[in-house]
Every structure is written in C-alpha cells, then in structure tokens.
C-alpha cells in the first residue's frame, strides 16, 4: 500500500496544514494569544517544581558554602560602613546639585518608567537564552528596551507581539550593551558569556579597574536609559599583554529563576 494512501500520511498532512496556518498567523503577528495559552496552562506545575528545587538547592548551597559565608559576612559588614560614609557624602552632593540646577535653570530628567512583566517561559532547554514575557507592544514594550530584575539589568527585548515579548538574557553570548564604570566614567561594553555570566570588555589597559566597582549603562543608545545598574566588577580576567582589560561581572540575580521583571522605558 502506497504511503500516501495510509492513515499516517493523512495525519502527517493535517499536521503540515496546521503548521502552515500557524506560520501564516505568526507572519501577521497574531500568534501571541495562542502562545500565551500554551505557556499559561502548565504554569502552576512549573512554579511548584521551581519552588521545590529552589528550596533544596539553597539548603545544600548554604551547607556547602558555610565557611565562605562567614568571610563574606565580615566583608559585607565593612562594606556597609564604607557605603554609609559614601552615602553621607552623596547626600551632600545631591543638595549642591539641586542648588546648581536651579541656578542654571537645567531641566530635570524624567524618572524611569518601568513596565512590570511576568516571565511565562524561561529558557526551558537552555537552548535560546531567552525569556518570554507576558507584556508586549500593547503595554508600550519595544525592541531594544532593557529588562530589569532586582534592580539590575538582566536582558534586552529582541521581539514583541501585541501581548507577549521575547527578551535575550544578559548571560547570552549574543548579548551586548554599552556600559561605563560608575566611579571613573570610563566607557566599556558588557557582553554575555555562554550562559554562565557577564564580561566587562573594551576597557583600556591604562584605565583603572578594581574589584567591587559598579558598572552601569552608558545611555548611548536612546532605547536604554542611563545609569541602570548592571553589576559589580569581579575578577580581572585579562593579562597586561591583551589589547583591552576584561573583567567578570557579578550580579545577585539568579538568571535561571526569574519570575517577575520590569521593562525600562
């Protein structure tokens, strides 16, 4: 019996027809609601699984890192004291800044507008390093806008539908954003590092760079607001023979467990 007369071929052909229809809907940007439905259905079970493993993972990681925690605790206490001193100075600078602005008649920059979004699907097979968010162009989300969580940059919007959008994670090897060192104003570039972290790159060898310095967005791109926190400098990974300085960036965000994010407009 020829294959085209079999039941298998009939099912195969029906599947191809459904796919062709879905591709047509996709080209019209009308697939968002169907996508949302498919991703919303298993959401309670996904969250239950993530909650269970998150608790187990954090319990064992605490036991494993007990010694390190004690050292970190001492370092953090010292850091708090330093930051309190800096804060007092900064408050004085803010007051002076306000007075100067009034004197010179500068227009105040508008405050950041944040669109809250829920993560519907988070890099399920670690294949694409992307998130699917439940907000789209209807909520004012546009391609190129930055995604934030816990006060840090975690990604960029790469695609929008009416009701959903896709964000590339900051740990993706294809992620790139203009940045600067907050302390010195030195320009740099932050790139993702094969799903494992972020790298600070293109800092001249002569420019100073120390562990713990904050890295923020440079605001060169009109879609990305200035001074959004990306992370802090970890270890310098380049040598003096390299063209530019490179350093790892540390961030407290757990990229594998993002549930709520904000899109900065």
């Amino acid at each position: 019996m020829k294959f085209i007369y079999t039941k298998a071929f009939a099912i195969f052909f029906i599947c191809l027809a459904i796919l062709a229809f879905l591709m047509f809907l996709n080209s019209r940007g009308a697939l968002g609601q169907i996508q949302k439905f498919f991703l919303k259905m298993p959401e309670p079970a996904v969250k239950a699984g993530a909650y269970a493993t998150g608790s187990i993972k954090s319990f064992f990681s605490v036991l494993y890192n007990l010694k390190q925690l004690s050292t970190e605790n001492t370092e953090l206490k010292n850091r708090v004291v330093e930051l309190k001193t800096s804060l007092t100075q900064a408050e004085g600078d803010i007051r002076d800044n306000e007075i100067l602005r009034k004197e010179l008649g500068f227009k105040k920059t508008s405050k950041l507008s944040l669109v809250p979004c829920e993560v519907m699907s988070s890099n399920i097979l670690n294949l694409t390093d992307t998130l699917v968010l439940n907000c789209g162009s209807d909520e004012g989300v546009k391609e190129g806008q930055v995604v934030m969580a816990q006060g840090h940059v975690v990604g960029k919007i790469i695609y929008t539908n009416k009701n959903t959008s896709t964000a590339r994670l900051a740990t993706s090897s294809k992620f790139l954003i203009d940045a600067r060192v907050s302390k010195t104003g030195q320009s740099a570039v932050v790139e993702g590092s094969f799903s494992s972290g972020m790298l600070l790159n293109q800092i001249p060898q002569s420019a100073p760079l120390e562990k713990g310095w904050l890295i923020v967005t440079a605001g060169i791109n009109s879609q990305v607001p200035k001074d959004l926190l990306i992370g802090e400098v970890g270890e310098v990974v380049s040598t003096s023979n390299d063209l530019f300085k490179k350093a790892s960036l540390l961030t407290p965000v757990d990229f594998s467990n993002l549930q709520f994010v904000y899109v900065a407009q």
Binding site: P42, A45, G49, A50, A52, T53, S256, N257
Partner: peptide, 20 residues
C-alpha cells in the same frame, strides 16, 4: 503536561555543561 512542567520547573536548576 507533567514532563513539560518537570523540565521547565524542576530540571531548570540542574543544568550540566550548559544543557538541560
């Protein structure tokens, strides 16, 4: 449905060499 939920929720925290 169950395996998808396990893949997305449970195994998300157990990646090896960058794969799930």
């Amino acid at each position: 449905f169950l395996l998808y939920a396990l893949n997305a929720g449970f195994f998300r925290n157990f990646e090896f060499f960058g794969v799930l």
